[in-house]
Design a protein around this nucleic acid. Structure first.
Lengths: 211, 211
DNA sequence: TAGATTGTTAATCGATTAACAATC
DNA sequence: TAGATTGTTAATCGATTAACAATC
C-alpha cells in the first residue's frame, strides 16, 4: 500500500469512486470488514483488480479478514477529496442546470452549489431552491468571493466553449462538462465529461449489439 | 474500413460519440471535408487514433482530402443507432428526474421520453412538461404499450437496485444509471453509468493532483 | 494448527501510437 | 507530377488478470 506521490491512473480513480459508493452500502448494513473478493463480486470485478487498486491508497488489509470498512471509507474519501467541501457554480439555468443546482445528492456528498448563472435576461432573478439566477457577467466576482473551484457547464452545445472560457478566466480549477461538445482548456484546469446524450448513445449501441 | 460483425471496443464507441458531436460542429460551420488530423486536434487525440477508430465503421476517406463530413455523420449515426428514435422512461420524479424528463437535448438527439414514474404518492399526477408523473406500478404496462427500450434511473442510491429490478422485469433492454450505486443486471440488459457525483469526485481528484 | 486472504510480481491481454506503402 | 493523407501493420505502452509466497 501507499504508492504515494506518483499519480494514480484514471481507470483506477474511476473504480475508487465505485468502491466508495459500495463501501457506504456495506457500512449502512452494519458490515465491519470486507474482503477484496466480496467487494469485487458486488461491483462485477475480479478480486485481483480490487487489491491492485487498493495498493495505490493508504490502507492495509489483514489476512483472513480483509479491509476494515471504516478505515477503507476514510482512505477512499481522503484520496478522492471527498472529505472536503468543494464549492461549485452552475452555468446555464435551463431545465438541467436548475435541476443540478437543486440536486440533493451533490451537497450530501460535499459539493456545495454556491450559485447559478445564465446570460438570458428572462431567467435572471428567478428562484432555484435557495438560490437566485445571477447574470453571467457576475461569474468572476462569485468565483473569487466564494472560493469556487468547480464550474458545472450546463449550456447548449454551441455555447459550451465560449462559456468554458469565461469560467476559466474567472478562475475555476475544474469543469464538469454536461454539454455534448468537447471543451478545450489549459493544462492548469481539469475537465471531466458527464455528457448524458453520449452515455445514451453508448447505451443504444450496447442494446443493438446485445444479441 | 468495415470490420463488420465483431464488436467494436467500448473505448472506441466512447470516442465515436465525440466524433459525432464534433462533426455536427464542422457541418454547422459549412465544412464539407475533414481530415483525421483536424478531427484529432479538435478533440485532443492523435490522428492515428482517429484513423484506427474509423476503420471500425463503414466509411472511406480519400487521400489528400480526408473524410466527407456528411458521409461520416451518416456512418457514425448508423453505428451508434443515432439514426433511430429510442423510447425511454424516467424513473424517479425528484429534481433530477423531472429535469431529465424535460431535457430538450434528449428528444433532439432521438431519445423520446415517453413517461416519468415515481413511487411517492405526493408526486404522482404532477405535471412535468407535457407529461404527468405516473405510479411506479404502471411501469410494465407503459414499457409494453409504448415500446420503451430504455429506463433512466434517477432514484436515491439505496433504491437503485430494487427499481432496476422492476425496470428489467418490465422489459427494458437498457438502463442509464444516474444513481450513485452499481446496479447488477442480467446479460440481456445493458447498463451505462452516468453517475454525476462520481464524475465530480474524479474532478476533485484531478484538481488536487493538477500541480 | 490449517486455511483464507493479502500484497506483489510476472504474464497476459488490449489499446494507443508510430511508421510507411498505397493512393488520389 | 509532387505531396498530403489514408488504411493498415508492427511496436509500444498501459491495464488487467493470474499466481503464489507471506501472514494472520
Amino acid at each position: 500500500m501507499v504508492k504515494e506521490n506518483n499519480q494514480i491512473p484514471q481507470s483506477v480513480i474511476r473504480r475508487l469512486t465505485r468502491y466508495l459508493s459500495q463501501i457506504h452500502m456495506f457500512r449502512d448494513s452494519g458490515e465491519e470488514w470486507v474482503s477484496s473478493q466480496v467487494l469485487a463480486e458486488a461491483l462485477d470485478l475480479t478480486s485481483s483488480t480490487v487489491r491492485q487498486d487498493l495498493s495505490h491508497i493508504d490502507i492495509s488489509g489483514i489476512s483472513r479478514k480483509g479491509y476494515e470498512v471504516k478505515q477503507l471509507e476514510k482512505s477512499l474519501k481522503k484520496v478522492l477529496g471527498a472529505d472536503l467541501v468543494w464549492n461549485a457554480v452552475v452555468v446555464g439555468a435551463g431545465n438541467l442546470g436548475r435541476a443540478l443546482a437543486a440536486h440533493e445528492d451533490f451537497s450530501r456528498k460535499g459539493f456545495r452549489i454556491c450559485g447559478i448563472v445564465d446570460k438570458d435576461k428572462s431567467k435572471i432573478g428567478k428562484r432555484v431552491g435557495r438560490l437566485r439566477v445571477q447574470p453571467l457577467r457576475r461569474l468572476p466576482i462569485m468565483v473569487g468571493d466564494e472560493n469556487i473551484a468547480i464550474g458545472i457547464l450546463a449550456v447548449p452545445e454551441a455555447a459550451a466553449q465560449s462559456v468554458a472560457d469565461i469560467l476559466i478566466a474567472s478562475g475555476v480549477r475544474g469543469i464538469l462538462n454536461m454539454a455534448l461538445s468537447h471543451v478545450i482548456v489549459p493544462a492548469r484546469v481539469s475537465v471531466v465529461d458527464a455528457r448524458m446524450v453520449a452515455s445514451l448513445q453508448e447505451l443504444s449501441y450496447a442494446i443493438m449489439t446485445n444479441r
